[in-house]
């Protein structure tokens, strides 16, 4: 039965997308709450450099992307609050990482890599091995966030409140950073570097008007992410459109719908 399921590329694509949505939902909520939307972008762009390096040293793409994404996230955490505004810092780092990554790719001789596949992802080409990596990463991220949930939430509200409760907000920031790096690394194959941030932010933003508690928002974001994956893949099949972007389009339309419903009923 499992073999039949995994034998179908559409089914593998759907499972891959659902796995990424699962990890992206709670993480995306924190990204939205902490106003670090560009943090996701920066980490993702840095991952291209990781892809280039892993090909150059014939490592697994997942490991390379993960390591560079993590280094990027740590650099941002370290540099923040040292004289530059966060958005300036992220702008500098995100785009230079992307540029260095693209230049680094050009140095790799003998290896033909499909750069487009990493920029835009190729969810339809997900293999069984990829699926294992994606689900392994997703479960790890969900467990990590679940374990630190209350501490993360307290630190997100206010760093001093966290200190007063005996929580170190810097450590919690590190947990988020780590989770973000893992998610980016596993999601590269599915939606690509340019759309990872979309999968993080859009379902969470779409879930906001429907939620009364942080937990509710994370769960709703997960559901929206999964439904967007399934609907987007179906739409891509029917209209012969690129799969990753179709998923993001469905998520965006969901965001539009929930925002409008909130506009009609502001007290919901």
């Amino acid at each position: 039965m499992l073999d039949v399921l995994l034998g179908d590329f559409m089914m593998r694509a759907a499972l891959a997308g659902i796995g990424v949505s699962l990890a992206a939902a709670p993480l995306g909520c924190f990204v939205v709450w902490r106003r670090m939307a560009y943090f996701g972008d920066a980490t993702a762009h840095a991952a291209i450099l990781g892809v280039a390096l892993s090909l150059a040293f014939s490592m697994s793409v997942f490991v390379g992307a993960m390591v560079v994404a993590l280094l990027m996230a740590l650099t941002v955490s370290f540099l923040s609050g040292r004289g530059y505004a966060m958005d300036t810092l992220l702008g500098v780092l995100a785009h230079s990482a992307l540029a260095f990554g693209l230049v680094a790719v050009s140095f790799i001789s003998g290896v033909r890599i499909d750069l487009m596949a990493y920029l835009f992802g190729d969810i339809l080409a997900v293999s069984r091995g990829d699926l294992a990596v994606i689900w392994g990463g997703a479960v790890l991220v969900v467990m990590l966030i679940g374990w630190r949930w209350s501490a993360l939430l307290t630190s997100t509200l206010n760093a001093d409140l966290a200190h007063a409760s005996g929580i170190n907000p810097k450590r919690e920031q590190l947990v988020l950073t780590l989770a973000l790096a893992i998610t980016v690394a596993v999601a590269i194959k599915v939606v690509g570097v340019l759309l990872i941030a979309a999968l993080l932010i859009i379902p969470a933003a779409a879930a906001r008007p429907l939620s009364r508690t942080p937990e509710g928002m994370a769960i709703t974001a997960g559901i929206i992410g999964m439904l967007s994956t399934i609907t987007g893949l179906r739409a891509a099949y029917v209209f012969d459109t690129p799969a990753g972007p179709s998923i993001v389009c469905v998520a965006a339309l969901t965001f539009l719908a929930t925002s409008v419903s909130k506009g009609l009923n502001p007290h919901s």
Partner: peptide
């Protein structure tokens, strides 16, 4: 045991939080 009321606390509009959930933090 310390109880701390900070100077200002900005709750981001994007963070849904009831008062009772807030009081349950960190648990």
């Amino acid at each position: 045991k310390l109880g701390y009321v900070p100077q200002k606390l900005h709750i981001d509009e994007t963070l849904p939080m009831t008062v009772s959930r807030f009081l349950k933090l960190p648990g």
